[in-house]
């Protein structure tokens, strides 16, 4: 197990933020009362953050195995939430079993063995063609296209896109050998911090709703403030990446924008399906997808940009 100095530094910073957040949460609780819904939710969120940060840190200390296993489990939890809401009938049973117990594990094995040529097409090509076959041979055509399409969407979002986070470990960047886990940390910290900062800016000065039908809590002030400040933090984290400060800022901007729109897209699906949260397992946050939506949308783009411009074969 190699612990990079950069990782220790980052973790210290994150813990410092959490300590400050926890203190602020407790002060607000004392001032406004424990019955205040916003404060109660805030405290629950902060508590959940402690758990998520510790879990992520442990996974990263476990290197490739840790990160691959963690994201395979997150994909499982996410896919479970997603497919709970999608259209399905008895005839889809085998397609669902195959999705969970064949496609998901195979994708992560391909990530584990660094087989880029296969993991980047396995779900978009092979699963995409296999699933409609598995469903068609059952003979039930009621809502067939909807069922096939929604199941494929679940796999693309919760498995394919999410698996691009551990896929960062397979990149071969000259002068950055053995440090790829820091790329994972960079992506996750920037995208999650962006979510948090959008929430904070929105709560402090948010006035103008950006998408009242999709996500009533998102405001222009939160969006601009969150994206700008998270990009600035991303630039400030350049020392743990193979990027220059300017490149880090650009990538952080792309990550935060994709993350923001990822949240919007996943909200649209929730509204469509008539639910408020994807699940209930992370107190204060909702389901796993509620926390992962932004990561999932930014990870593939961050992966491919980094691969194209910095990685060698």
């Amino acid at each position: 197990m190699i612990v990079h100095a950069e990782f220790t530094k980052l973790l210290t910073g994150v813990f410092a933020i959490l300590v400050v957040a926890t203190v602020i949460g407790q002060i607000l609780k004392a001032r406004l009362g424990a019955e205040n819904n916003v404060v109660e939710n805030l405290v629950a969120r902060i508590n959940a953050w402690w758990g998520m940060v510790v879990l992520l840190a442990l996974a990263m200390l476990g290197g490739q195995a840790g990160v691959v296993i963690l994201f395979a489990l997150l994909s499982f939890a996410g896919l479970r939430e997603f497919l709970t809401l999608t259209a399905k009938r008895r005839a889809d049973h085998w397609a669902l079993v195959v999705s969970f117990f064949v496609i998901l594990p195979v994708q992560y094995v391909l990530i584990w063995v660094d087989w880029y040529g296969m993991f980047s097409v396995f779900i978009p090509v092979y699963a995409f063609l296999l699933l409609p076959i598995v469903i068609a041979v059952q003979g039930d055509t009621d809502g067939y296209l909807t069922r096939v399409a929604e199941t494929q969407w679940g796999l693309m979002i919760c498995v394919f896109a999410a698996s691009h986070v551990p896929a960062l470990l397979s990149l071969n960047i000259p002068g950055y050998e053995g440090k790829n886990v820091l790329l994972v940390a960079f992506l996750v910290v920037v995208v999650q911090l962006s979510d948090v900062l959008q929430y904070v800016w929105g709560k402090l000065i948010g006035r103008h709703k950006i998408a009242p039908h999709l996500s009533p809590s998102k405001t222009w002030e939160g969006f601009v403030g969150g994206v700008a400040s998270a990009s600035a933090v991303g630039a400030g984290l350049w020392w743990m990446t193979p990027f220059t400060p300017l490149e880090a800022a650009g990538l952080a901007l792309v990550i935060t924008l994709m993350g923001f729109f990822g949240g919007l897209v996943m909200s649209a699906i929730k509204r469509d399906k008539g639910v408020k949260d994807w699940g209930h397992l992370i107190a204060g946050h909702g389901g796993f997808i509620d926390r992962l939506d932004s990561v999932v949308f930014s990870a593939p783009v961050f992966f491919h940009l980094t691969r194209y411009f910095w990685s060698v074969a």
Partner: peptide
């Protein structure tokens, strides 16, 4: 009639 459960909430 099915034996393998599908994980759903």
């Amino acid at each position: 009639g099915k034996v393998i459960p599908v994980p759903l909430l």
